[in-house]
Structures are given as structure tokens and as C-alpha cells.
Simulated assay, not measured.
Amino acid sequence: MSETVLVTGGTGYVAGWCITELLKRGYDVRTTVRSAKREQVVTGAVASEVNPAGRLTFATADLTADTGWDEAMHGVTYVLHVASPLGVQNDSAADLITPARDGSLRVLRAAAKASVKRVVMTSAANAASPSSYATEGVTDETLWTDPADPTLIPYRRSKTLAERAAWDFIENNDTGDMELTTVLPGAVFGPILTTSNIGSVGIIARMLKGEMAGIPRIGLEIVDVRDLVDVHLRAMTSPAAAGQRFLATGEFMWMADMAQALHDGLGARGSRVSTRHIPDFAVRLAARFRDPSLREITPALGRRNRHSTEKARTLLGWQPRPARQSVLDCANSLIAHNAV
């Protein structure tokens, strides 16, 4: 009989690709949705890549409530906890931290009760980054972001505290033989399965639509969603991965270089992509007087902090693809799905 893997948050961008790849590799998959009405959305997305009939099942469970998690874990061998609480503009720290931290603990408690072999939890590279906004530097999994740093945006603080709470739970509770591994991705791009939830690739959609009049001096460590799923699955089964954190950040790329790659690589389809640079001072002025949402990116202007993925490469044999390929594959997928 095939092993069953539970993927949390089945309607999510990363979760959809996790489900797809698990099915391709012969696993049975159960995934959580907050409402049974969302099941068809997941099935339709996955069916564009693989036939899910008979091997994909659903459980109704929400990170903000205890109900449904015991049933979701029944008969499960592994858990990929990739779900994140939905946020809205101007989230406060509590709006994000409480559901992220408490939701992770709900998943871990139910998994331990069901004698799950291993939980692989999706954290973020922002949970292993220096608190100071130096312009250069390379860090690895031994570093923890300081959640007490008052300059942290709520999202970054929530991801750090949620992961920290997960490790504390494993250390301080009797979880039997259950193991925990965490994966810390950078900016996730790549092809989409559906337009119902395009996740982080929305920034590329905005570029293609011509909605970005200029490009700020922001750099991203780009990981393809397919490579991110691959490292999750390697972390799920590798004996060497038990009790480890793995950065999965991919190649560093300035947004200006992303825009140029889209403009040059797509021909006429990339004609609306702006390659005009926006000076740092203009971004800061706009953040202060016109668009408060820009305040979260101003500390990252000109910053080229990077993360080492040597651990994932060495222990798991992980090999991510070039960032430019992910950006172009993402754009072509958005165009093919009529999302731009």
C-alpha cells in the first residue's frame, strides 16, 4: 500500500505543487481545506498535471481552530505543513503571529498523537536573516532572526516565531518517534497550476501587465516552486534531514534584472514590462507620503544579503535551477493561463 502524505492548505500555490509532485511519485495525498467548497479548486488545479482520481482526499481543517486535525492525520505517514494564515493589507503583528504560531502547534500536536513519522514545515529565509539591514553578507541555518527587533515587519516576525515555537514543541514535549524538519525558502516563483491563487508570482503578473511604472532597487533570492517542492520531498524522506533546518533560497537576482529578462525573453509579450529604475529616495518619499504599503520594502533597498544553501545541496543533493529560467517559466505560465 502507498504511504499517505498530508499537505496542509491545499488551495495554496506551493501546496498545489506539493500535491502534484507527491501524486506523480506514487504517494497517496490528503490535503486540508478550510471549506469543502474549495475541494474542486484543488482537484482542478492538480488535474492539469496529473490524474488525482482515487489518490487525493480532503479533510476540512483550519489553522485557527482545533476541529478536524485529528481526522486529517488518520493513517498519515508524513506531513508537509506548508499552509500559512491568510493576511490582509496593514496586518498587525498579532493578526499574523497568533494564527501562524498556534496553527503550527495544532498541526504538530495532532501529528504526534497520530504517530506521524516526520513533519516538514515551511518556514522562510526571513527567519534566518540578520536583524540589522546591512547591505552585504551571507548567512546559514545556524542564524535565527531576532523576533524582538522592533524594525521587523509583522510577516517576518510571524514566520520566525512560528518556526521557533515548532522547535520548542519538539524539544519540550513527548512526541514519540516523530521528527521535525523545516525548510526556509526565499522568493517563490515558477509556473502556476491555477489562477485562483497565484501566490508570490503576483509580482511578475504586475510587471507583465505594465502595472509597475518603475523598478525599485530590491533584490530577491529566487527559488522555483518545483525546486522548493523537491527539497521538501527530499527533507521528508532523507534520514539525514531529521531535526534539521534547510535554507532553500535559490539564486539572487535584482528586480531590475528580472524586468530585463522578461522584456528580452518574451518578445512582444513582454513589451509592457518597465525597465525604468526608481531611485531609492523616490521609493522612500512615496512610502512616507503616498503609499504606506511601500514602508515594508524600504529597509531592503539596495540590500544584498544572501543565504547559503550548501547544507541542502550537501545533505540532500538538492540542485535548484537558474533564477532567470524560473522567472521566464513563471511569465509564460501566467500568459498561458490568461492571468495577464
Rank of each mutant, 00 (worst) to 15 (best):
V231N: 02
V138T: 05
W69G: 11
T194K: 13
A282E: 05
N90V: 00
R245G: 11
T43M: 14
A331Q: 13
I278E: 05
R157F: 04
E21S: 07
I222P: 01
R157S: 03
R156N: 09
D28A: 15
P147Y: 01
T135Q: 15
T175Y: 00
Q319D: 15
T4E: 04
L105P: 04
R226Y: 01
L6Y: 06
A187Y: 12
E296G: 07
L96I: 14
K113G: 07
R272T: 09
S104W: 00
L22P: 15
A36W: 02
V138N: 05
T67F: 03
S132E: 13
C330V: 04
M258V: 12
V29Q: 10
T160N: 03
V29D: 08
D140I: 02
G54C: 06
G214C: 06
G214Y: 08
V273Q: 08
L266R: 02
I97S: 11
P85L: 05
R30G: 09
F289D: 00
D149M: 01
F281S: 15
S35V: 05
R217Y: 00
G210T: 11
Q40E: 09
N332W: 08
S129R: 10
I203K: 12
S274G: 13
S35R: 15
V41N: 14
A165D: 04
I204C: 08
R55A: 03
T135R: 15
T145E: 06
S238H: 10
E39L: 10
L105W: 01
D149E: 10
F252H: 04
V42P: 12
L80W: 05
L266E: 02
I97W: 08
D95C: 05
E141A: 13
L247D: 10
Y155A: 09
C330R: 03
A331R: 06
C330G: 11
R288N: 09
S158Q: 01
Q40F: 00
P150D: 13
T60E: 12
N90C: 06
G54Y: 01
R321W: 04
V46A: 12
A268M: 06
V116T: 14
L63F: 04
L184A: 10
A47N: 15
T4N: 12
G176Y: 00
G26R: 01
L161C: 06
G54I: 02
W318V: 11
D70Y: 05
Q260N: 11
K113L: 11
I215L: 10
S132G: 10
G267D: 11
P320M: 02
T135D: 14
V183P: 10
A287K: 07
D291L: 15
E251R: 09
V119G: 03
Y78N: 11
A15F: 01
S35A: 15
A47P: 15
R55W: 02
P150Q: 09
G243P: 09
H232N: 05
T4V: 07
I198G: 08
N197H: 08
R164W: 06
A287L: 06
T237W: 00
T175H: 14
L328V: 01
A124M: 03
A47E: 12
T67M: 08
A114D: 10
T139L: 01
R295I: 03
D280H: 11
Q325F: 02
G302Y: 00
D66R: 09
V283I: 15
A83Q: 08
V46R: 10
F252S: 05
D177L: 08
S104D: 10
D177S: 15
I97E: 13
E221C: 09
D230Q: 12
R295E: 13
F281C: 14
I153H: 09
L328S: 03
